[in-house]
Design a protein around this nucleic acid. Structure first.
Lengths: 379, 379
DNA sequence: TCTATTCATGAATCGACTT
DNA sequence: TAAGTCGATTCATGAATAG
């Protein structure tokens, strides 16, 4: 087994120095176990690490959707660990290996879900890493919760850490602020899942990797915490999203991956990428559309109180607001929309404009109350 | 020092049983250290716990300076390790105390930031708690990052956990869905900070508590994971947001707090709250909690007659109703569910929504017929 | 060619009750 | 306790298909 593979993308996009040009591992994928492979790299050689380690999901039996189709779960062998202890030992080992190759002012990003991220975060702290932020990737289109037993798991957590408290990592504050319409970039990132043409598929049309990350996510990480010519390491390279974005943005990458199938897909993918003129590249922007205010917010915020009486504009129908945000009108209960439709005997109804509330001498639609909350949120 | 304080709000809002009315600690604030105070409570007596623990018990104020100014604290590895260890020991102690008083199917919510939440989450898992979700409170109006060295820290993390993997916690799925305009509730909650009139101020206009949580946050937690009459514990009661919302929503509360000033503020605050009346506190129920109507009832009541023809929504499949409540479709016979599955070649099928009947010009699911019987039974 | 409808799918720790 | 039965349960998006 060759330890170093020189793939189609072996030429560094932007080697800023003679020294880097001599390093054979730049812009390659190293095949093998993460810890062993990282021993091939010199210490203090990496500016930025993005790590998407196994999440250690502990799934039960099969899960079916309401239409009885089966959910294609992430049940690969590499995600299975015998115990929390085993997962912790694995995590400590790769974090130490990564720590050695990081430059003193380098940055580390680790992504995970509630299954593993708390263990990763605690171990990071135990090893002396310094957490700069935790960042929330909010998925605009997550998979729903089919059984109605939990909240829709609509996000993942990313930890940004440095090697020590004293580190002074790259942080392109102004670039991010400009990108974000002159507002500071926040710790919540609204980005869609990796789907469509970006999602790598095999000949059979099946996804190549169960957990391919969107390029928009890496784009934001690299834009925030690296400079052109920097070296970006991904110790769990998978199908190479990190390498693809690094090449696009004129950064050098180095990946570590165990599965040959993923390496092949990644090399083909990165080979097709051209390093762009950075000024022409555009980050995928978060949705800035006006946020939805659910009816329940009127109760949470106290704008409306449980027991309040709502009427239609003419006072012909009425309903009582219950604490959980449902309405009750005679035998009918349900959302403002559902009850609005039921009392009128119609198929559908916009509860926001149908239901009114009497305040003093004025009867106004509850949509006005929502507007009040919106203006509060904006200030 | 009195261990039990019977404040202005000592009367339980909704004691559902004689037993609870006899328990002196219900709807009181217990003054003292969290672990010691919880020993006064019987085991398995609490339905829901909301905990907002200190972030830095032994770490000093270092971690939380909003201006990120350099701290002159000892930062060598040993001290750092010792500090985290002390925090971990504290966390383990109060989580074990809470675990004892939780009912087997009770829920625990813990809120924190990146400074402490990873340690809390890992310890939760180590102690055998089972994480149901992590929830992100997204602040619509967070404090900006003044120095431009990090992302604006615009969120906090809440962990929802049960005592064990096998627990079956209260989760008012349908109420939350109705609350959220008929979309299932997600793990990201967009809520503003506690400001304005809701924020408790002392005579000098200074905020009474540095980290008062908004009532909207507790409203959602209690709406999700408790029922009217439940017992809600807050082991770090502060100025009593948990108690205030519990009383509003007809839940019993019990708080633990060390600082007399906070206890005074909380008792005054809760004393002014009025509990909503029972009908408005009723939660939107799902179908599962409604009375079961077997298919045979449709025949018994004459809503459906033997020999009736059922079809799927598109009319592609059909079946004949037999007098014993079974269906016959070609060679397939059996229950509405079994025959529905068989004709589609699937493992399972909800016959109530799969099979339809033509009534005049409308084709409607037989579930509607069941609904008619239900409403008849209610009147 | 354009529009409307249907279909597929994404890191998921995803029953409850009776016999 | 284990097995069998009943029957509850999904949102956003893009691609494919139909009109």
């Amino acid at each position: 087994m060759r330890v170093l593979r020189t793939g189609v993308s072996a030429v560094a996009p932007l080697p800023p120095s003679e020294l880097q040009a001599q390093q054979a591992w730049l812009n390659t994928i190293i095949k093998g176990d993460c810890v062993a492979a990282l021993e091939k790299l010199p210490s203090k050689s990496v500016d930025l690490v993005f790590a998407d380690p196994p999440y250690n999901l502990q799934l039960g039996g099969d899960l079916h959707r309401p239409d009885h189709s089966k959910v294609d779960a992430c049940d690969d062998h590499w995600d299975q660990f015998a115990s929390f202890e085993a997962y912790d030992a694995f995590t400590r080992a790769w974090l130490l290996a990564v720590r050695r190759v990081m430059k003193p002012d380098g940055s580390l990003y680790v992504i995970g879900s509630y299954h593993n991220i708390f263990r990763v975060g605690a171990i990071l702290q135990d090893l002396g890493f310094w957490i700069m932020n935790d960042i929330i990737w909010l998925k605009s289109n997550p998979m729903p919760n089919f059984r109605g037993k939990r909240f829709t798991n609509a996000h993942e957590t990313i930890i940004w850490a440095t090697k020590s408290k004293d580190a002074k990592p790259t942080f392109n504050y102004d670039a991010l602020k400009t990108f974000n319409d002159d507002l500071q970039m926040r710790s919540d990132w609204h980005l869609p899942l990796c789907t469509g043409a970006e999602r790598l598929k095999d000949d059979g049309g099946q996804k190549v990797h169960p957990t391919q990350k969107p390029e928009s996510l890496l784009y934001r990480v690299l834009t925030a915490s690296s400079k052109p010519g920097d070296v970006v390491l991904d110790p769990f390279f998978g199908t190479g999203t990190t390498g693809a974005v690094a090449k696009k943005l004129g950064r050098n990458y180095v990946g570590v991956e165990r599965e040959q199938a993923y390496i092949d897909a990644a090399e083909a993918r990165i080979g097709e990428i051209e390093t762009g003129d950075a000024s022409t590249l555009e980050m995928q922007k978060g949705k800035r559309s006006e946020r939805r205010i659910p009816f329940g917010s009127l109760l949470e915020t106290g704008v409306l109180k449980p027991g309040a009486k709502l009427t239609c504009s003419k006072g012909r129908y009425y309903a009582i607001v219950r604490a959980d945000g449902s309405l009750k009108s005679g035998d009918h209960t349900g959302s403002i929309h559902k009850v609005g439709a039921l009392v009128q005997g119609q198929q559908a109804c916009n509860g926001w404009t149908f239901w009114h509330i009497d305040t003093g001498q004025v009867r106004k639609p509850i949509d006005d109350l929502r507007q009040e909350i919106r203006s509060r949120l904006h200030t």
